[in-house]
């Protein structure tokens, strides 16, 4: 499989700057070859630790002080801490140009897996390798409701690591795509005056303005009206062509079918199935009992 790649492409260990051009090179060099991997999960386990769940019912302050004291005292297993084993032994390889859907019932570990891929949660066991820095499409936390939409576009762009020049260049695109200005000059009003749909559209618009190597989307398509959902789907296809790999977590089976060509199905944190969208979705729908 992948090991024939370096034999036929001499510059394979070369600088990463050439990655964008490589998938096509690979295809010409070795016909059945796969594009370069962007995310490799190797038997990944993610475990949450929840503090302050001691049965004694003490307040957080005393419990925390107690924890500090105890840690200094012994340093063994902490009491009053519960662990949640959210992702168990998941392995997969994602490649450039793929759009991968993550499905599963509530609490099956989809979002946790996404956060681990983004490097925002530590991996308990196993390894996660990524090409560059995968980014979650979620700029929400950086935005402030008391600021105008315009300032939020700048703030959100900067928070994602765009330069001021890049933001200026894409500013109009972002505003147009969000459609916030369709019903008057809303972009110069504080975001707290927006309807929830408008705010969600602006957030998606800001979040998807940056080119990502690996883009992780968590239920983003569930928001907005039907016409905006259509636009976001086409935006994701665009991002996928420009960028590397897109991961999409959604409970909307239709949007998974429309955007993804491969699906990972998680259940109880375990990878239950991995394959082409149609096959996995058929099994998943049988499992959940009819079309969702």
């Amino acid at each position: 499989m992948a090991d024939t790649l370096t034999k036929t492409t001499p510059e394979a260990p070369g600088p990463r700057a050439t990655t964008a051009a490589r998938p096509t090179e690979d295809r010409t060099a070795a016909a059945p070859e796969q594009p370069a991997p962007t995310v490799i999960a190797d038997a990944v386990d993610v475990v949450y630790r929840v503090h302050g769940t001691a049965a004694s019912g003490r307040g957080a302050a005393t419990a925390a002080l107690g924890r500090i004291v105890r840690r200094r005292g012994r340093g063994g297993e902490e009491r009053g801490v519960r662990t949640v084993h959210a992702v168990r032994n998941v392995s997969f390889t994602a490649r450039r140009g793929e759009a991968i859907g993550l499905i599963g019932t509530n609490g099956s570990g989809k979002s946790t897996l996404l956060k681990a891929v983004a490097g925002l949660l530590p991996v308990e066991r196993g390894h996660l390798y990524t090409d560059g820095q995968p980014s979650l499409l979620g700029v929400n936390a950086a935005l402030m409701n008391d600021l105008t939409g315009e300032r939020n576009v700048h703030l959100g762009g900067l928070a994602m690591g765009m330069s001021r020049a890049q933001i200026r260049e894409r500013y109009q695109q972002i505003v147009d795509f969000s459609g916030v200005d369709d019903k008057g000059d809303f972009i110069s009003l504080p975001m707290r005056t927006y309807s929830s749909g408008m705010a969600a559209r602006l957030r998606f618009s800001i979040g998807s303005a940056k080119d990502h190597d690996v883009l992780l989307i968590d239920e983003a398509l569930a928001t907005g009206d039907r016409s905006f959902q259509k636009r976001s789907e086409s935006r994701i296809r665009e991002l996928r062509e420009r960028a590397g790999t897109v991961f999409l977590v959604s409970h909307n089976n239709k949007s998974i079918r429309d955007t993804c060509d491969r699906v990972l199905w998680l259940e109880h944190g375990e990878l239950r199935m991995d394959g082409p969208t149609a096959e996995v979705m058929r099994e998943y729908e049988r499992f959940t009992g009819g079309k969702a």
Partner: peptide
């Protein structure tokens, strides 16, 4: 595979 393609540990 990760080493071959220059992938790094996330986070």
């Amino acid at each position: 595979l990760a080493a071959r393609h220059g992938l790094t540990v996330s986070g």
